[in-house]
Structures are given as structure tokens and as C-alpha cells.
């Protein structure tokens, strides 16, 4: 027992975390599709992050493109051609990644925080708190999304943050329901009883037993919520509800439509943002499903 005198409780925690991270990586490595998705995601994130260093946002401001050729086909100079104002489509897609990913992640964070908070409160405390919170959740769940978003966007004005807000406020109820059902089952576990018998209060039980057990579920559902948020942003931007001063993938599609790129067969204008959306959404979804399978013990085969 002498060597124990020097051991700190923190060392045990770190050892455990290292072991679980290693186990997670082992399971992930077996799933090639998920690994590919992860690579795609990392690629897009890196592109979005480095955009300001490799290019200039001002390069595709309409006032700066006077000399550029209009509707140029993809070439060495313009990797993905130019649009009806002579702006480089490649640059727009690159900068659009920043907006789309930001909105996707920010809206998801809002969704998760709200949903987890409501889900844990409702599931853990039960009774009238549960009843009230769940009725509110149901109310948000049945709001027809598009009309609500259009109204909110016109009331609040068209900005990036408003889009984040609109998506977040309409998509947290499903997370809340998911978390609540998990908490309801966790609450009845014997080890929660034991923690209460040991003298642990509510904060202790939520912090030590409930939260760590819903986190994997929430994490997995996060990666599934991001693509939905990206698609929602795309939809809103396509409908002209996006931030007019910013360029997002949905916004590009909207402009391609106004410029009649589809009917005049200028595929390089509408295809690249579309493909980018599909790739990111698909990658997030596949990775999310894999994550769910690894982290949720109920889906694990053993």
C-alpha cells in the first residue's frame, strides 16, 4: 500500500480515459466507410478554416469582377468556371463551406444544449416538471417548420445568427425526447439507487451517473443533427431567407437558379455546391451512424 501514497485519484481517471479512447479508435478503424467519411469531413473543415489564408473574400465581390470573363467554363485559371458576374465558382464554394459548416455546427450546439437540458430535467425530476416540459416540447414539435422559419426570418431580419436560432429552436424537441427516454431508464438503474443510498444528492447523481451515460447518445445524435442543420440552412438560403451579405452553398444554388444556370445548362455553377452539400451531409450521417453504433451499448453486438 506504500506506493499508493503517491498515487493521485486523477491518475486513475486519466488511465481510464486513455483506455476508452484507444478502444474507441480500435472500433472505428474497423469501419472503413466511417473512416472515409471522417477523412472527407476533416478535408472540408480544413478547407473552410484555411480559406482566408489562401484566397481573398473580396475577389468575388461583384464590384471587383469587372474584368473577369462571364460564364467561363472550368479551366486552369478558373477551376470551376465563373458565374454570370464573372465570379469564380470555386472561390464561392470554398467560402460557402465556412458559412454552411458554421451554421450546421452552431445550430447543432444550440439544439443539443437545449435538448439535453430539457430532456434531463424532464426525465430526472418527472412529475409536473416532466409534464410541463413535454407539453412545451410537443408544441415545438408540431410547429410547421418552413412557415415558422419564414415568419421568424422576416421578423428578426436576415442574418446568419437568426438562421442558427431558427434551426436550433425548431429541432431541439427530438433531442429532448431522446435524452428523456434514456434518462427515464437510467433513473431506475440500481447504481443510481446505490448513489442515493450512499447519500448522493441530485447534482451528484446527474453529474456522475446520468450525464456521463447520456453523453455518448447525445454525441452520436449531434453528428446526425449537423447534416440536418446544413440542409436546413441550404433550404432557407435557397428560398432567399439567407444572409444576403454572406455566401453559403444554399445561397449559391439560389443565385444559380436566378441566373438560369440550370436551364442554360451551365452545370459548373449549380453542380459544385450541390455535390459539396451531398458529400458533407452524407459523410456526417455515415460517421454519425458509426459513432452511434460504437458509443451506444444497446447497438453494440456485445
Amino acid at each position: 500500500m506504500s506506493d499508493l501514497a503517491q498515487v493521485s485519484p486523477r491518475a486513475f481517471r486519466w488511465a481510464r480515459r486513455r483506455a476508452s479512447a484507444a478502444g474507441f479508435w480500435r472500433s472505428l478503424r474497423r469501419d472503413k466507410l466511417a473512416l472515409t467519411s471522417l477523412v472527407v469531413l476533416v478535408l472540408f473543415v480544413v478547407l473552410a478554416v484555411v480559406a482566408p489564408w489562401v484566397s481573398n473574400r473580396a475577389d468575388f465581390n461583384v464590384i471587383n469582377t469587372g474584368d473577369n470573363p462571364v460564364w467561363a467554363k472550368p479551366s486552369g485559371q478558373y477551376l470551376l468556371g465563373t458565374d454570370n458576374y464573372g465570379r469564380s465558382v470555386a472561390l464561392q464554394v470554398l467560402w460557402g463551406a465556412r458559412v454552411s459548416l458554421f451554421v450546421g455546427v452552431a445550430a447543432t450546439v444550440l439544439t443539443i444544449v437545449l435538448g439535453t437540458l430539457v430532456g434531463i430535467s424532464a426525465g430526472f425530476f418527472g412529475g409536473w416538471i416532466d409534464a410541463v416540459l413535454m407539453r412545451i416540447t410537443d408544441w415545438f414539435l408540431v410547429i410547421p417548420f418552413l412557415p415558422f422559419a419564414i415568419v421568424l426570418a422576416s421578423v428578426l431580419g436576415r442574418s446568419l445568427w437568426n438562421i442558427v436560432f431558427v434551426i436550433g429552436i425548431t429541432s431541439w424537441p427530438s433531442t429532448a425526447r431522446l435524452v428523456r427516454s434514456q434518462v427515464l431508464s437510467l433513473r431506475e438503474r440500481l447504481y443510481v439507487d446505490r448513489a442515493r443510498a450512499l447519500g448522493g444528492g441530485r447534482a451528484h447523481i446527474i453529474g456522475r451517473h446520468i450525464l456521463p451515460n447520456v453523453t455518448p447518445l447525445v454525441l452520436a445524435s449531434t453528428t446526425l443533427a449537423v447534416p440536418i442543420s446544413i440542409l436546413t440552412e441550404t433550404t432557407l438560403a435557397f428560398l432567399g431567407l439567407g444572409d444576403p451579405t454572406d455566401v453559403s452553398w444554399g445561397g449559391i444554388l439560389d443565385q444559380a437558379r436566378t441566373a438560369a444556370a440550370v436551364t442554360t445548362n451551365r452545370w459548373w455553377y449549380y453542380l459544385p455546391p450541390g455535390v459539396a452539400i451531398i458529400m458533407v451531409v452524407l459523410a456526417f450521417t455515415i460517421f454519425g451512424r458509426a459513432l452511434e453504433a460504437i458509443l451506444d451499448p444497446r447497438l453494440r453486438d456485445r
Binding site: 486513475f12 481517471r13 438503474r189 440500481l190 446505490r194 450512499l198 447519500g199 456521463p212 451515460n213
Partner: peptide
């Protein structure tokens, strides 16, 4: 408890399981 398996949080090491009460009190 009757069911020692259920009474231990599967995510907690033995150290943490024993230390839990010490920390609470």
C-alpha cells in the same frame, strides 16, 4: 444490493465505485 452487477455503474472503475461515498461525505 441483491444484484451487484446492476448496483455498479459500468462506466466507473472499482476505485471510483469505492471512492464515490468517500467523496460524497
Amino acid at each position: 444490493f441483491q444484484d451487484p452487477t446492476g448496483a455498479l455503474n459500468p462506466r466507473h472503475s472499482i476505485y471510483e465505485a469505492v471512492a464515490e461515498g468517500l467523496r460524497i461525505h
